[in-house]
């Protein structure tokens, strides 16, 4: 391609872009209504028209430890709904009491996520379910084992037939659990109410916290309906997180382990902050036990700034308003 043509192409592209920009801008002027205009965080919209029978079947499967190879670990063991969908441990324990290497993320609002696992290796909730089942230090099971178990259990056979009209199979198990996950949505939080126009829904301190959250730049990544969970970012993007003082382990390399691409080194899915106050400890390895510390470290490494203590407290006040009510689950 000669530089002449390249220049023309570039001009064309740029023109296109400018045109689109103008169009969109005009368009947007009419779109935004009563809701807060152009906030990085949007209210949670729960799933509609869930199949109740699928949800209750999924719930049963989710809590059934017999799906694991030694019959001790259910999904709910690490994603305990009694404790906001986490186990409150730095890293989770699987079958035979084996220690894993990841902090278990909450199951609540997980269905809203764009990608799954800390390295985003699963694209859908359905895709995600197989992984912990087959992971040798999590449930250590296999589809064969699970289908044998379900196929020999009259109760399951009859409920699968009732819900789906056929005997249990892999896709149906996944479908039921995914449907159950979709029912675990924390919505209508005080903050969402505030976003919808109720100025009194959150305290002035929380509002200040939200302003700080935005001005410090936290909301550049922790954004969207789920306040995170919709993109990847390098841990230590401004100031390196891993180094001589804090050497990285293999499990800290993030998406690099998936792609083998150097630019994906230390890249992790930005976690959702919807339930952050209630789901300690923090970071992918659960190494940080307090929210206070987590915010400070984020400021230092992701934003390149030291966040003052009173600011941290206000941000925490804001974060506390993000949790809504669960539609079902317990």
């Amino acid at each position: 391609m000669s530089p002449h043509i390249a220049a023309i192409t570039y001009c064309k592209q740029t023109f296109k872009i400018i045109l689109i920009v103008i169009l969109i801008f005009v368009n947007n002027l009419f779109v935004y209504g009563a809701e807060k205009f152009r906030e990085p965080i949007t209210p949670v919209i729960p799933f509609n028209n869930l199949n109740k029978d699928k949800v209750s079947l999924g719930k049963k499967l989710f809590h059934d430890p017999k799906l694991s190879s030694d019959g001790t670990v259910s999904c709910a063991k690490c994603h305990n709904l009694e404790t906001n969908g986490v186990d409150l441990l730095p890293v989770s324990f699987g079958i035979n009491g084996e220690k894993g290497n990841r902090n278990s993320p909450t199951i609540i609002n997980a269905a809203l996520q764009y990608r799954f696992f800390w390295d985003g290796r699963a694209k859908t909730a359905e895709e995600q379910i197989t992984d912990p089942i087959e992971n040798p230090i999590e449930m250590g099971s296999s589809w064969q084992h699970i289908l044998l178990y379900l196929g020999s259990n009259n109760e399951y056979i009859s409920s699968f037939n009732q819900v789906y009209g056929v005997n249990p199979d892999r896709n149906l198990v996944i479908d039921a659990i995914a449907e159950f996950q979709k029912s675990l949505i924390s919505y209508n939080s005080p903050f969402d109410q505030y976003l919808k126009g109720d100025e009194n829904a959150i305290s002035p301190e929380a509002k200040e916290g939200y302003a700080l959250f935005k001005s410090y730049g936290c909301s550049q990544c922790h954004q969207g309906m789920n306040v995170g969970g919709n993109m990847f970012e390098k841990i230590g993007v401004i100031r390196p997180y891993y180094g001589k003082d804090n050497p990285a382990k293999l499990t800290d390399l993030g998406r690099y382990n998936l792609t083998g691409n150097k630019e994906d080194m230390y890249e992790f899915r930005v976690p959702s902050l919807r339930l952050v106050v209630k789901t300690p400890p923090y970071f992918h390895d659960g190494s940080i036990s307090t929210l206070n510390e987590a915010i400070q470290l984020m400021g230092k490494h992701q934003l390149g700034r030291d966040i003052k203590d009173d600011h941290v407290n206000k941000i925490i006040q804001f974060l506390a308003t993000l949790e809504g009510q669960l539609e079902s689950g317990k």
Partner: peptide
């Protein structure tokens, strides 16, 4: 493509729209 441009020039406040389109 529209979302990409919008996000690039700060016309979108988050990536939810882009993500849902991609899904």
């Amino acid at each position: 493509k529209e979302y990409i441009v919008e996000n690039r020039y700060g016309l979108q406040t988050n990536y939810d729209g882009l993500n849902s389109m991609h899904d």
